[in-house]
Computed example of a mutant assay.
Amino acid sequence: MLKIGLTGGIGSGKSVVAKLFGLLGVPVYESDQRAKWLIENNLKVKNKIIDLLGKESYFENGKYNKVYVAQQVFGNQEKLNLLNAIVHPSVSEDFKEWCEQKTSPYIIKEAAIMNKNSGLDKIIYVESPTELRIQRILERDKNRTFEQVQNIIKNQKSETEFKEIADFIISNNEEAMLIPQVLDLDRILKSIA
């Protein structure tokens, strides 16, 4: 079974592309959603986050206090790295267990953070113009400001860095048709699986 990474910056449309693959019957592992689940439900992860950032990291009802955590880690690279060192290995282990349950010719792992050495066979990059990405995010996330969105984009891989790790590129601009691109890639991936 091929393990295919699906990545792109915030607002690029990688979630839409992942849904299209899902509609074709391809199992899709959504890293961000699983990370959120693990942060709230995996006791080992919770305890490590509390040890790192304090009990304020969770509300009394056990829900993750993402506003507090964001205040602690953004602007503090060392704490952000330590938090990532808790969450990312847990997601990797969860992904490995998830893969063991699948029998498809290939699976998709959707994640914003991805590298060539992520243990994946191929990587798909969803590209989209920065202005369009910002517009999408502001429409989707009403609580974010233009400056916050720019800061998030600035802290992610550049288009050049994404392209360097990509085996395939899907264009998601206003003119691009996503469905034909996904259908083409599905055919290609099944042929090499």
Rank of each mutant, 00 (worst) to 15 (best):
A35V: 03
S171K: 14
S92H: 12
F168P: 12
G119C: 09
F21N: 10
A193T: 14
F162K: 11
L20Y: 12
E174K: 15
A166Y: 13
N42I: 09
F146T: 02
N172F: 12
Q72G: 05
F74Y: 13
I170H: 02
A193R: 01
L80G: 09
N151Y: 04
G62V: 00
S92R: 15
V28G: 14
Q101N: 11
Q148H: 04
P27M: 07
I153T: 12
E147P: 03
E161D: 15
K44L: 06
I108N: 15
N76K: 12
R144Q: 12
M114I: 15
F74R: 14
W37G: 00
L185S: 08
K116S: 08
L82T: 04
E60A: 03
R136V: 15
G5T: 12
K63F: 02
R133N: 06
G54D: 03
E174G: 06
V126H: 00
L38P: 04
F74L: 03
L178S: 10
N84C: 05
S31D: 08
I113D: 07
K36I: 01
I179E: 06
V126F: 00
D32F: 01
P180N: 03
N155F: 05
L2S: 07
I86E: 08
G5E: 12
V28I: 08
L53K: 00
K190T: 15
P129W: 04
A176T: 15
I170C: 11
I165A: 11
P129E: 06
A166W: 14
M114T: 12
R136P: 09
E127D: 12
M1I: 06
K109I: 08
N117H: 14
L38Q: 00
E159L: 13
M1F: 05
W98Q: 09
I134F: 07
M177S: 08
G9F: 13
V26S: 07
K3V: 13
G75H: 07
M177Y: 11
L132V: 08
I153Q: 00
S90N: 05
I4T: 11
L82M: 03
I50N: 09
G8D: 15
V182I: 13
A35K: 10
I10R: 06
R187K: 13
G13I: 14
N41F: 06
K66A: 06
L2G: 02
I137A: 13
K122F: 15
I152C: 01
F74T: 05
H88V: 05
I49Y: 11
N61T: 03
N42M: 02
S118W: 15
E174V: 14
D141A: 02
K96G: 01
V91S: 12
N143S: 09
I170F: 06
N143W: 08
G11V: 07
V87Q: 05
S191P: 09
Y106E: 09
Q148A: 12
G9V: 04
K142Y: 09
I123W: 15
V149S: 08
I50P: 02
G54H: 02
K163D: 01
R140W: 07
Q77C: 00
F162R: 13
R34E: 10
N61K: 07
S90V: 14
I124Y: 10
L43M: 11
L24I: 08
N42H: 06
K96C: 03
D51C: 02
G62E: 06
E175V: 07
L189K: 00
V149F: 10
I124L: 08
G8M: 13
E56H: 10
L185P: 01
